[in-house]
Design a protein around this nucleic acid. Structure first.
Lengths: 216, 216, 216, 216
DNA sequence: TATGAATGAGCCTTCATTCAT
DNA sequence: GATGAATGAAGGCTCATTCAT
């Protein structure tokens, strides 16, 4: 009656499903396609997953867990905050490159299946924010990172840029090396794109309402 | 015979469709739902759109056109490159805030309905890259923007960060003011998150293969 | 409220409908197609015909009437029974050749829309039988036609053969001259395909139950 | 994935479909009606047939194959050409009587669904022509069949007359015995309806262009 | 009269899910 | 456990018919 998890066949089906989802999108994928890709009968899938939605949810939970581990480990391995940031970005790119299908599904379905994957996604986001938050605090103590920063926005800056790099990679056929983008990205994160003169110029932009910036 | 475009009812149906798509996703939306939201009969939709896919395509084409205009105008209105960048980011945030449903659909379906919306999406991306490219070149002449930049990556940095800000806004209930994020974002883009010491530290990160960075 | 018949537009629509029916079949034809072919608006058709079925019925009634006239006239013009038969067959082929679309529709839809066109079809059949019946009786008096014939079967022989010739003409692209088949057909009807020896051989075939032969 | 053919349920559905098609015509029949008649769910039909069209095509292929076998066997069993002709006509009537629904569908849809059933229909026609052709040649050697015949026209004479007999049978409620018409039909085919005097009279009909007669 | 936009019932087809084997 | 045939609800789309202009 209740589904069996963490068996070989479970993994086999999940892997097949991710591949199919990556190809056609979750909503356009059918149980029959997944079954064929996994080399099992349609009905067999229901021995391991409650229903079609459950497959996606399981994937997100696994993915989140795996990614979390990787990110934590990557950050732990760095000594300075900048090392840690570099390791984090590199780990992000590496884990998505090594699991292209998973990456595609994750990037594509998060918005669309929000109701289903809200929980793992939020957890991922929280984890990311926490890592960035610690990084920034550490860097501020080291004197390598500015002290006038809204952490929430920094997180969005870094996460958004990295994800955009991954998206571009996906849409251009996944034919270039993703982790090698880590260093130039971190370079941009740290130094920005401006010169000293540019920095001064920015300070003369009209001030704005900073109240709502710290959301999430 | 052929569909009637640019009529009141066309707009009415398109608006309804965007609302429904934003709520449930394109694939999960039904013609019946759109018809009900628009206050017309199911069949009426087919007087204005070839089929369901066509509704999404029309939306993308309209959106792309509208956004392009806004962005071009915004950039044209700035005097310095930093002004222009600020105006661009602000325009991006403004146009998506003013069309929340459209923003959601655009962000959500681009990846998933790639076959359908490839063309307008590519056009949008090209336009964005062009604007950034000109901005950067101008800033480099002004001496406000660094000269050692890969424009493609800068575009991904800025676009990715802005879209992530929009996504966060969407996922947190669209309850804060989006355009006010423009200034702190530009501040981060120009200055980065590092200090002088941080900048020096970045230069000591392991060098990497820069060959493939210029993709897109 | 009540439909107007025998006006120019009525004829125009009817002609257009027959053309469309011939192309795609009655059930696969749409009012929109007929309207376009006729150069009128969809709604206009309902000023002249009760509904789609009515168009077919009107066509059958007209066709039956026209064909009847032609057949009667053709038969009246012959002097001997064989002349009359020849004229009948030739008229049949002529009228269908001169109205190819009508011929196609008539041949194709009679079986399928039996419920709709039963009446005119039956009338046509009755007329045909009557003509043949008179022909045969006349020939028997003249001594040119056998006296041991079941008229119903003779009618089916002649009508069936002529219609099959028409069908073949339709299916081979309507590119040969139809009325010129009248003479060889009549030759076969009168003489049969056998020799004297053949005729003798036929008489030795097993006798059968002749009771039910005279139907229709 | 691919449809299952030659199973019990396949036959069951095909039989039900033929019954429904015979009742209402192919285009007016619905999958739901067929499913109900077959006692299965709508979706089940798609496990055995690609789509609605495929059902008709399958029927035609089966029918053609079955009829071909019957006709070949019937002709093979006769000794003289007239025996063979009689057997052929009788087999034709028998096979259509024993499969009334199939007969109706075959006669009704051949013209209308020409695109779909062209292939089997052409094959059937070719087979029929071949049989007639051999028959005639044999009879001519035996001296029982005239030597001045256009085979194509003879085929149309025989086929047309037989089919008209079947049509009449269908339209009059299928209440008389069809095979018993074989003998009087063959009698007409061989002897014609004329007397010696009639034959002479025919020869005085206006000559015509014989060039195009041999089509098909 | 004539129009053609609007309607909505109905149909083919797909596919998640079940269950007898 | 594993299968895959069967189910039937649901959705995209068509088109005969109506009616306000």
């Amino acid at each position: 009656m209740s589904v069996k998890r963490n068996t070989d066949k479970y993994d086999q089906i999940l892997a097949a499903a991710v591949k199919v989802f990556a190809d056609r999108g979750f909503a356009q994928s059918t149980i029959a396609q997944i079954a064929q890709e996994a080399g099992v009968a349609d009905g067999t899938i229901y021995l391991y997953f409650k229903n079609k939605d459950d497959i996606l949810v399981q994937f997100y939970e696994r993915m989140t867990e795996h990614v979390s581990e990787c990110f934590y480990k990557a950050v732990a391995e760095g000594t300075t905050s900048i090392d840690k940031l570099y390791n984090l970005v590199r780990a992000h790119l590496e884990v998505f490159q090594s699991q292209a299908s998973g990456a595609i599904v994750y990037q594509s379905e998060t918005h669309l299946q929000w109701r289903l994957v809200q929980e793992p996604t939020r957890q991922m986001s929280r984890m990311y924010r926490e890592l960035i938050s610690k990084l920034v605090a550490m860097g501020q103590q080291e004197g390598t990172i500015r002290s006038d920063l809204y952490v929430g926005l920094v997180k969005r800056l870094i996460n958004g840029a990295v994800e955009e790099v991954i998206n571009t990679w996906i849409h251009t056929g996944m034919d270039h090396d993703l982790p090698s983008m880590a260093e130039p990205l971190v370079d941009l994160f740290i130094k920005g794109i401006g010169t000293q003169a540019g920095a001064t110029a920015v300070d003369h932009l009209a001030p704005q309402d900073n109240q709502k910036i710290m959301v999430q």
